[in-house]
């Protein structure tokens, strides 16, 4: 990585873990750029879940999410020779995926079909669900399904950009700066969008949320 690119990526990548991740990604990218096409599979395996999760939470449709994630990886593969390490690879890949999803959502604004993934209610999610209900068995599953629908409905009531910010911050765990870079806007815009989106979600999910 060139000195300039390294310095720039340091400013954009928040934590040291992300910096290490960016460095290892840059090494793989250089291998792909030099002709080692199979090295790109490492990047696919590393980021497919995260990219899929972002796209899925934006679209609330698993089939569309699968297609859009694949398209994002193909686009990244086709234009990887233009990637010069000025940002971290995952930010660049996220930008491709988010832009593709945004254009897809704009094209199909009036045609929205929901198809949800199953909630794996172990670990943290199981703990939260247990706090929300004391039901067991089929009733619990019914409750979880109802909660999932309410949650996705509330997210779909947000605008595309607000939904993207909430998805990237609350679900995927990106920082404000990273979201600003992915969405090509200022950090202030990200914060204001997040604040507005949370207010709307709070009113939509008030029967489940007790603050």
């Amino acid at each position: 990585m060139s000195m300039f690119a390294k310095a720039l990526s340091k400013t954009l990548v928040a934590s040291p873990e992300r910096q290490l991740e960016a460095d290892s990604d840059w090494t793989i990218v250089q291998r792909v750029q030099s002709g080692d096409v199979s090295a790109f599979d490492n990047l696919i395996r590393k980021y497919r879940e995260r990219v899929y999760a972002v796209v899925y939470n934006m679209t609330s449709n698993r089939e569309d999410a699968a297609d859009l994630t694949q398209d994002a990886f193909i686009k990244a593969f086709q234009s990887i020779h233009r990637f010069q390490g000025q940002s971290s690879f995952f930010t660049w890949l996220y930008r491709i995926a988010v832009n593709g999803t945004l254009s897809h959502l704009r094209k199909n604004r009036l045609r929205t079909f929901f198809s949800f993934e199953k909630i794996h209610d172990e670990d943290k999610a199981g703990e939260i669900i247990s706090h929300l209900t004391d039901k067991r068995g089929a009733d619990r599953e019914l409750f979880v399904k109802e909660l999932q629908e309410k949650l996705n409905e509330a997210l779909q009531k947000l605008s595309i950009k607000h939904r993207t910010v909430v998805t990237l911050f609350e679900i995927d765990g990106l920082s404000h700066e990273e979201i600003a870079e992915v969405m090509d806007c200022s950090v202030g815009t990200v914060r204001s969008r997040l604040h507005y989106a949370k207010q709307l979600l709070q009113s939509e999910l008030q029967s489940y949320v007790r603050t």
């Binding site: 999760a53 670990d123 999610a125 929300l132 409750f143 679900i171 949370k198 949320v209």
Partner: peptide, 24 residues
């Protein structure tokens, strides 16, 4: 459900975190 909700405060962030559990 209401009994449980009264016992512990559930935040919006925690509810949204359920979305992380939606995995293929």
């Amino acid at each position: 459900m209401s009994d449980r909700l009264d016992n512990r405060k559930i935040t919006l962030e925690e509810v949204l975190r359920l979305k992380r559990a939606e995995r293929p």
